[in-house]
């Protein structure tokens, strides 16, 4: 088939692009508009709403809390999911189907259900409704995002042959890991880490249900403001969008030109 486009398909793409960017652009403009409710374009521009947002006592608290949860999930991914994935790939291939299954399960468990289950079981102190329980839930919910890219890059590089040739050349296990395997799967690890960060940072359901007011995260503050003050909510949305954009662009950058859309994009919303 020759690559060619009809007018119809170009129109389709145009509508799609508008659909995808209008909400974002509108939110950005809303966040810097002085007054914008009767005309198509804002009447003036201001950064006051950001000032209001920054001045809010909960702003830095929720931002810090969100970073704590996101970084914890990333660290768990790096020091727990990645080694386990590597170990299973190289040493216990027979455990691979089990690992695959465990990694697909979180997709099948809606976040509300996971939250409900965790709250029911861990209803005793000090775990009940603790940040620790929230982080654990986030690790469960985000681990497929770490697993997929790492597992794919491990399969792509043929770890067995690399390990065997390194062994044959006299390298020890540590040298193999650090000098042969890690550099080769680094793009997978990095994009996994960024994906985990972005999804956990935007995570609302688990945070709202597990910790709620006792350990507020950034999305909770945002939802609160959508009901209280739209302008500040817009400023917070922009911050949230921007974090997501940066993470996504960084993922595209580290994963290079080989674009492989996979099921890891399926987020539990």
């Amino acid at each position: 088939m020759k690559k060619q486009n009809s007018i119809f398909s170009l129109v389709l793409i145009g509508i799609f692009v508008l659909y995808m960017i209008i909400p974002i652009i509108a939110t950005y403009m809303f966040s810097i508009a002085t007054k914008w409710d009767v005309s198509i374009l804002p009447e003036g521009y201001t950064l006051d709403w950001y000032q209001t947002a920054f001045d809010h006592p909960y702003f830095s608290i929720t931002l810090t809390n969100s970073f704590i949860v996101s970084f914890s999930a990333v660290l768990a991914g790096l020091f727990f999911i990645v080694p386990t994935t590597y170990w299973v790939h190289t040493r216990v291939p027979s455990a691979k189907p089990l690992l695959d299954l465990l990694m697909i399960l979180p997709f099948g468990i809606p976040a509300v259900v996971l939250a409900l289950a965790l709250i029911r079981v861990y209803n005793f102190q000090p775990v009940a409704r603790s940040p620790f329980l929230l982080i654990s839930g986030c690790v469960i919910f985000s681990m497929p995002f770490m697993y997929r890219p790492v597992s794919n890059s491990l399969m792509a590089i043929d770890v067995h042959t690399l390990t065997e040739s390194a062994l044959n050349l006299g390298a020890n296990t540590f040298q193999i890991l650090v000098r042969v395997i890690a550099p080769n799967i680094m793009p997978g690890i990095l994009s996994g880490a960024l994906l985990v960060f972005a999804t956990v940072f935007a995570e609302f359901t688990l945070a709202n249900l597990i910790t709620g007011a006792s350990f507020k995260t950034f999305p909770l503050l945002l939802v609160e403001f959508t009901k209280r003050d739209g302008r500040v909510a817009a400023a917070l949305s922009v911050i949230s969008f921007t974090v997501a954009w940066i993470a996504s662009l960084a993922i595209l950058w580290v994963s290079g030109r080989g674009h492989k859309p996979t099921e890891e994009v399926v987020a539990a919303h």
């Binding site: 692009v17 995808m20 960017i21 909400p23 974002i24 509108a26 939110t27 972005a198 999804t199 935007a202 995570e203 609302f204 999305p219 945002l222 939802v223 959508t226 739209g230 909510a233 817009a234 917070l236 949305s237 949230s240 969008f241 997501a244 954009w245 996504s248 662009l249 993922i251 595209l252 859309p261 994009v265 987020a267 919303h269």
Partner: peptide
């Protein structure tokens, strides 16, 4: 664009 927007969900999307 698709990669980024499919992950834009939840509160910021609703607000947009």
């Amino acid at each position: 664009l698709s990669d980024v927007t499919t992950n834009f969900a939840g509160a910021p999307l609703a607000f947009a």
